[in-house]
Write a protein that binds this DNA or RNA. Sequence first.
DNA 1: AATGAATGAGGATTCATTCAT
DNA 2: TATGAATGAATCCTCATTCAT
Lengths: 224, 224, 224, 224
Amino acid sequence: MGIQERKEREGERRRQQIIVAARRVFSIKGFNKATMEDIAGEAELSPGTIYLYFKNKDELYASLSLRILQYLLIRLQHVNSEKIKSPEKRYAALTRAMIDVYEFDSLMLINMFNLQTNETLKTLTPELLSEIKMLSCKSIEEISLIFDQKTSDEVLSGCKSSMLAEIFWSVFSGVVLFQESKKSVLGEDKVFLQKTLATAFEIFELGIKDSLSRQQSEKGGLQS
Amino acid sequence: MGIQERKEREGERRRQQIIVAARRVFSIKGFNKATMEDIAGEAELSPGTIYLYFKNKDELYASLSLRILQYLLIRLQHVNSEKIKSPEKRYAALTRAMIDVYEFDSLMLINMFNLQTNETLKTLTPELLSEIKMLSCKSIEEISLIFDQKTSDEVLSGCKSSMLAEIFWSVFSGVVLFQESKKSVLGEDKVFLQKTLATAFEIFELGIKDSLSRQQSEKGGLQS
Amino acid sequence: MGIQERKEREGERRRQQIIVAARRVFSIKGFNKATMEDIAGEAELSPGTIYLYFKNKDELYASLSLRILQYLLIRLQHVNSEKIKSPEKRYAALTRAMIDVYEFDSLMLINMFNLQTNETLKTLTPELLSEIKMLSCKSIEEISLIFDQKTSDEVLSGCKSSMLAEIFWSVFSGVVLFQESKKSVLGEDKVFLQKTLATAFEIFELGIKDSLSRQQSEKGGLQS
Amino acid sequence: MGIQERKEREGERRRQQIIVAARRVFSIKGFNKATMEDIAGEAELSPGTIYLYFKNKDELYASLSLRILQYLLIRLQHVNSEKIKSPEKRYAALTRAMIDVYEFDSLMLINMFNLQTNETLKTLTPELLSEIKMLSCKSIEEISLIFDQKTSDEVLSGCKSSMLAEIFWSVFSGVVLFQESKKSVLGEDKVFLQKTLATAFEIFELGIKDSLSRQQSEKGGLQS
DNA sequence: AATGAATGAGGATTCATTCAT
DNA sequence: TATGAATGAATCCTCATTCAT
């Protein structure tokens, strides 16, 4: 048992070793220009070894997303598990969670966003694909839940909260990707992503609050 | 001259023919998996012919972005040229412009957002790259100007309006990309992108308004 | 039309050029040890060109069999079309046909026999596979027909003639392969295959004749 | 010594274990497509272990032939050692021996026939190669001897009997391989190989008898 | 003796790009 | 200008074999 366990842990370490190398190489060279040999070299392994842990290049790339998605989901579930009553505090916790995720591994986060609108998805193992889908859906649902709880006492339907969740997620991904693109296109050196994110979330929060209060008084607005 | 002109116009038609085909193929297969032969087949031309009009695959891909960026800039400049006084109406015009751009060619728009954090950028001709940068920057500036005019009479600094512009841009791209990713990852069939976009902009607008009014009274908040 | 035609003929020439090279290389190095680069080199083409005419290595290998199978079928159909009355002469024509096929291209013939009991079959295009099956079946049927006509006036059922055809075919392939193996295993230099084949066919003929005459008198023997 | 012996016996058991697994895998996937890992898995051993018992893949494959060849030779020697006088009974014993060999291990038999015209031969150790050659030659010689004895009192030269032996061998291998190919190419489900073999041998026997009797009377025919 | 993770050379295949027509 | 056959470098991936444990 102890041996079995140690071996599995050893294998997991290898996987991480490869993932770390792949992350570095992919983020420098991009998916297409990065070769498996590059990654093997970065991981100080031979190319063949990578294939002991990942079926092919596409799956290796997609696996990068998995870790950040897992972290994201755990972080969001944690927010919900705290059963925060005040909507404002719940929203603040959500915002904090997203920024945490970003800080946890921004490179992988960007990889993930790229993956999601990418041809690579179409060539993945069904297992990996459904794992990614499952994690994505669950995360959106958790965000939705945060908004749902928040707005349940404020007369907003569930359908509305899922849309809020999607928009919130969009704002997040949009800001992250835009900041990334600024580096390459707009030539900005220092990126104040956190500040921008915080501002974006703040604007978003204010907007929702206002929307809610208007709905209470007018029973109109966003529902249409 | 007449002949010269007709030839040029003929050439421009060919370029468009190729661009249209490339747009279709790229949006179905993605940049990496799409081959020049695919595109040539779609355009009912031979591979060699494409190289008479585009230096290589990367430039062809980048050209797709160029057209939409040009349209975007023109649309934004038009908003500003109208010298709308009321901040609310100016914001509404901006929102309308963005949705126009989206409807003009959503496929290319998505391509462009992908391009920005993509390896493709790294291999472009300097001319094309700077063209893209220039258009992107100008567009952001135009948006910034819209917010600037809006808020100039509302005690917000220029730095603030450029950040608003960036966040607005992020929200836009985030929503567009998220809707795209929903198709492939989340498995949604019908996508109500326009509605989502409208809602996102509405929330954003409410948030900004609230932020502004709070600033007036408290002289705090977002500036920090 | 003339241009179209010339191009097609040009393409067919290329195919033959590749097939000839492949035949040489496969027969020297065997399937596994022969590389596509070897074949390309032998054909004085680049590796990529081969893939314009053959889907992959397996299909190229299988295509070698196609030509000999086609020749075989035509040769057998010709025998049947001659409507030879005398059973002895019909059998002689069959024997001659088989030896012709062998002389036409013995290397390809051996390749074909190897192919038939080979894993390669499992990875072919359905089209190519069914082409091979069709040709094989038709050839056996033609042989069967030769025996059928021969024995129709000799009280043998169709089932019997198809078995005769299979055994005849087996004798043929067995002799060919054995002679080939003698080269590599038994170290024989000069191969008297024709003589051996002729003898085998002669023995086979005598055996059938005898069998038939016995059946007539005894109504027993082979049918059981 | 006791320990030594037990170890050797243990080792021999392992060899057999591997051979049995290899036979299965090779016959399902063929030589090229079968991997050492496949075989190791089938034998419930690790890849490394196989290399303790067999020098490499080629030798393992060749070893499969060795066993059947050894069995064949013993069986044929047994026929000759019986000193059967009647030519008919000797021939019947030969036929019985061949069918025995087929039944002993048809999979390996087919493998062996494939081996003979295969690239594999070219990479064997000289020792193994000469072992195979030796067994093959001896077997042919034994068959030849059976015919020789048969025909010695029937005025046929030794050259003639060796040719008979080769043809007999060819008929045997041809029928076996053809039946195998029927499975994959002709799509037959039930294979009446034994019956076909019996028929083929019967035809062959009748042919030889007839040939011999004709020779006696005419002093012509096959000798040429 | 047995393992099985790691190796890395080797080969099939692809595809952007060219160029003779 | 247009073609599309040909190219061949580049790269993914396999798998027989090894060797430290």
